[in-house]
């Protein structure tokens, strides 16, 4: 009994330290509030499911060379379009005899790469434009938001197509094109949040300390906008993956030998009636990852939304 009680006590004292109402240092306060957020996130099983899939995706992407049973580029024309669960090829082979499972595993890297880059570029640009427009007001607001409107007025994929056509096909250009079409909604959200925040007393109070507009925007308005942006980004991730896959499908994203999931569907399209798995398997992968991001976004909204957390 005594053997088991020690680790248990240790565990509960950690918990107490993390759940305290009276943190003793800056880092303690930060860790404690993070842990409380994690607890409320953990209690949402769907969000945890989404997180699990994404952790798995990251794991697969990182260890792709170890996990993949074959080289994703090696062709074997004598064994093309092998069905599911055929010998040595669990998910079959495509029209050039390349192992679909290996291509899927390497494709996870490309998907993550696109998602992370777009998630870094678009929300940051939108946050900057939106908060500056909302806080400054007047003609700066008018000009920035009309530019946003112009970008919003274009159909997303058509605009991305135009950019890729102008810049040249390729994965980097696809990322830039998707980012260029993805930032206006974030600018809208950030501006709307800023408008509700900028006249509040705590902004007035920091103005009375002589803080300049840049400081107010970056240190006082950004932290309050970021949570709703993070939620929006995770919910948009599915759309971003689909846009990247769409560009790949149209031949304007990743270029042929590369195992990008959208491009894989595009290749499989030619055989979809006789050899359905060639297009379906990467389609399922896109579906799973999109779903995972949506579930994660839903869970994060419950944790991060400042209007619900009572603060």
């Amino acid at each position: 009994m005594s053997i088991f009680s020690t680790p248990h006590e240790n565990h509960s004292s950690w918990r107490r330290w993390l759940l305290t109402d009276t943190p003793t240092s800056r880092n303690h306060a930060r860790v404690a509030s993070f842990y409380q957020g994690w607890l409320s996130f953990k209690s949402n099983p769907m969000a945890m499911f989404g997180l699990l899939i994404l952790v798995f995706l990251a794991f697969v992407a990182i260890f792709a060379p170890i996990l993949a049973p074959h080289d994703p580029f090696t062709q074997d024309l004598s064994n093309r379009l092998a069905p599911l669960a055929s010998e040595g090829h669990f998910l079959g082979t495509d029209s050039l005899g390349r192992d679909i499972l290996s291509r899927l595993i390497y494709g996870a890297r490309i998907t993550l790469y696109i998602v992370l880059l777009v998630a870094l570029i678009a929300p940051v640009a939108g946050l900057f434009v939106g908060t500056v427009a909302g806080y400054t007001g007047g003609w700066v607001d008018a000009i920035l938001m009309r530019i946003t409107d112009i970008f919003l007025a274009f159909p997303r994929l058509v605009l991305a197509l135009a950019f890729v056509a102008a810049l040249g096909a390729g994965i980097e250009n696809a990322v830039i094109a998707i980012s260029l079409t993805a930032w206006p909604p974030y600018a809208r959200i950030a501006r709307a949040e800023t408008l509700t925040i900028r006249n509040s007393d705590y902004i007035s109070a920091v103005k009375l300390q002589g803080a300049g507009p840049l400081r107010i925007i970056m240190r006082h308005i950004w932290p309050l906008c970021i949570s709703s942006l993070i939620v929006r980004v995770t919910l948009d991730m599915a759309g971003i993956i689909l846009a990247a896959a769409g560009l790949g499908f149209l031949g304007l994203g990743a270029q042929p030998p590369s195992p990008e999931w959208g491009a894989m569907i595009s290749e499989g399209r030619k055989f979809i009636l006789d050899h359905w798995w060639v297009a379906t398997i990467p389609g399922l992968a896109i579906f799973m990852v999109s779903l995972a991001f949506n579930l994660l976004g839903d869970g994060l909204r419950d944790v991060l939304d400042p209007k619900d957390s009572g603060s």
Partner: peptide
Amino acid sequence: FQDPYASLHPRHSVDQVLSET
């Protein structure tokens, strides 16, 4: 200010508020 529920930044700890000031 009048309303202490509105005059403190919801994401800043007491320490952050005072040290920034």
